[in-house]
Amino acid sequence: MPLKIKNQTKKKGEIPIPAIIPESEVEAASLEILSELGYDYLYGPDIAPETEDAEREDFGIFILPRRLRAAVDRLNPKIPAGAREEAIKKVLRAESQDLVHNNRAFHSMLANGVDGSRPLQW
C-alpha cells in the first residue's frame, strides 16, 4: 500500500514532493541506506519458518533471537553471560498489549541500556 504524504505548497525553486510514494520505493531506499551502513539484507522467504534456513518459529517473531544473541555476545564480551541473557530476555518480552508502549520501551532499552544490568552495546 502506498504511503500518503500531505500535499505541500511548492515554493519557487523547490522540487515538488509527490502526493504518494509507493511502499516498494520506501523499502528500496531504506535497504540501500542500511546496506551503505554495513547491514546485511536477507530475503524474508529465505529465512521463513519451516525452511532449511529458518531463523524464526513464526512470522510473529520480528527479532531474530540467534542474531540478537550473537550481536550482544560479540559487542559485550566483558559482561557476564547471565547478565547478557537477562538483558536479551527483557528485549524479547513484550511489556504490554500496547504497541506504542512497547516501541517506546524498546527504544529506551536501546538508547539507555536495560534496567537492572550493566549498559550493553547493541
Rank of each mutant, 00 (worst) to 15 (best):
A29D: 10
A29I: 06
L31R: 10
L31S: 08
L31P: 00
E32Q: 13
E32P: 00
I33S: 08
I33H: 11
I33Q: 14
L34T: 05
S35Q: 12
E36K: 06
L37W: 03
L37F: 08
G38A: 05
G38Y: 03
Y39V: 02
Y39M: 12
D40C: 02
D40R: 04
D40K: 07
Y41Q: 09
Y43P: 12
Y43S: 13
Y43R: 15
G44D: 06
D46T: 12
D46A: 07
A48H: 07
P49W: 13
P49E: 08
E50T: 02
E50W: 05
T51P: 09
E52M: 15
D53S: 13
E55W: 13
E55D: 07
E55A: 15
R56A: 11
R56M: 14
E57G: 15
E57V: 14
F59W: 15
F59N: 15
F59E: 14
F59T: 12
G60P: 02
G60L: 07
G60D: 13
I61H: 11
I61Y: 08
F62K: 15
F62D: 06
F62C: 09
I63L: 11
I63Y: 14
L64G: 04
P65Y: 06
P65L: 04
P65V: 08
R66Y: 03
R67Q: 10
L68V: 06
L68S: 03
L68D: 03
R69S: 09
R69L: 05
A70G: 07
A70T: 07
A70V: 02
A70H: 01
A71F: 00
A71Y: 00
V72H: 02
V72G: 00
D73Y: 01
D73L: 01
D73M: 00
D73G: 00
D73V: 02
R74W: 00
L75P: 05
L75H: 05
L75T: 03
N76I: 04
N76P: 11
N76W: 01
P77S: 01
K78Q: 03
K78L: 04
I79Q: 01
I79M: 03
P80H: 02
P80F: 04
P80V: 04
A81I: 08
A81Q: 09
G82T: 05
G82R: 05
A83V: 11
R84E: 02
R84W: 03
E85V: 07
E85M: 11
E86L: 15
I88E: 13
I88W: 13
K89G: 14
K89I: 11
K90A: 10
K90L: 11
K90I: 06
V91K: 10
V91Y: 09
L92R: 09
L92H: 09
R93S: 08
R93C: 10
R93I: 04
R93W: 10
A94W: 14
E95M: 06
S96H: 08
S96C: 03
S96T: 14
S96F: 10
